[in-house]
């Protein structure tokens, strides 16, 4: 009877072993400390483009192990500059402190501009009260001085004081859901919308503390969709994918009037929250790892750049600067 138990156990283990060995048959591993791997981290905004290219690349190069994640631009650079990743996506340019960090660890890199994103300020599709906001409105609603406002009307006084176009605001609940401080999308928003006014008024250069900060773009979307007069911001692609639940507000930089984010307005720069998206490639690793060079080559090929549009972002008009930078790495 006990022999049976053991036989059954051995059989089960053998089954499991064959099941997981099943796709190893063509195993042609490079061996030697796991060469043949590409690890990509960084911005969750850039992640869809890099992941799509990783998928296309993996089909052509099945012997390469490739992983793509998107914890946020800031966290991505931390890892990248510690040598823990090969490529880091970024929805803003590298900061001085980060490039010093890279230099201190002997990480050399090349910056490649791969796409343009329009940081989209969102609300629920049921929101009929608000259609456009200017930077001063956004500062009054989301800036450091708005701490504690849970109704749009509470920001009216601040908005009028700043001379915001759309103040006073409606009497409606205000719930803000957006990316947290690890995110380049947060950094971009603060840089574009809050920085100048905060400096002028001697305030902390940051968004209010009491918005719902999530690293998960879907949580942000469902948070924005959750209440009719919500507010938040994400990368353009996440807006495009969720147009049935969220709507983008037009944004006014104070000069050119209200502009809605569309692929045209983002491409020609008339949308005020347009920003470049980058990948940063570790060049010393590229010198040692052919598969990394192959991947970036593929990224900048016609097929690779097609991923930009496929994921909902806007392609650059001209990639010669990007390919030039890669060639001269």
């Amino acid at each position: 009877m006990l022999t049976k138990t053991w036989t059954a156990l051995v059989l089960v283990l053998a089954l499991i072993a064959t099941a997981c060995g099943g796709d190893d048959t063509s195993g042609e591993g490079d061996g030697g400390g796991g060469a043949g791997t590409i690890v990509i981290s960084g911005s969750s905004t850039v992640e869809p483009i890099s992941a799509r290219n990783a998928q296309k690349f993996a089909e052509l190069n099945p012997d390469v192990t490739i992983s793509v994640e998107g914890p946020g631009t800031g966290d991505g650079f931390k890892k990248f500059c510690a040598g823990a990743t090969d490529i880091s996506g970024a929805s803003r340019a590298i900061q001085d402190s980060e490039s010093e960090d890279c230099a201190a660890n002997g990480v050399d890199y090349v910056e490649l501009n791969v796409a343009i994103d329009g940081l989209s300020v969102l609300t629920s599709i049921n929101n009929t009260a608000v259609g456009c906001l200017d930077f001063k409105d956004l500062y009054a609603l989301i800036g450091p001085e708005s701490l504690g406002f849970d109704n749009w009307s509470q920001a009216s006084a601040l908005g009028s004081e700043l001379g915001a176009t759309h103040a006073p605001y409606p009497d409606a609940p205000l719930v803000i859901t957006a990316p947290g401080e690890e995110s380049g999308t947060y950094d971009t928003f603060v840089e574009f919308v809050i920085e100048d006014l905060a400096e002028e008024r001697g305030q902390e250069n940051a968004a209010r503390l009491d918005y719902v900060a999530s690293p998960n773009d879907n949580t942000i979307i469902s948070g924005i969709a959750g209440s009719d007069t919500s507010l938040g911001w994400v990368g353009y692609a996440f807006f495009v994918e969720n147009q049935d639940t969220v709507a983008a507000l037009a944004v006014d930089d104070g000069e050119s009037g209200c502009v809605e984010p569309t692929s045209e307005s983002i491409a020609d720069g008339s949308y005020p929250l347009s920003r470049p998206l980058f990948i940063y490639v570790n060049t010393s690793k590229a010198a040692a790892k052919q598969e990394l060079v192959d991947y970036v080559d593929f990224y900048l090929s016609e097929d690779g750049l097609a991923s930009v549009g496929e994921t909902g972002y806007v392609a650059l008009a001209d990639y010669s600067e990007t390919t030039g930078a890669w060639a001269n790495r």
Partner: peptide
């Protein structure tokens, strides 16, 4: 653990044990 896109393709057993995983 790899939380996003991940492909080990036809990597060998050793690479699978020592490389990224999900």
């Amino acid at each position: 653990v790899a939380t996003g896109f991940f492909s080990a393709g036809s990597a060998g057993l050793f690479d699978r044990l020592t490389g990224p995983y999900t």
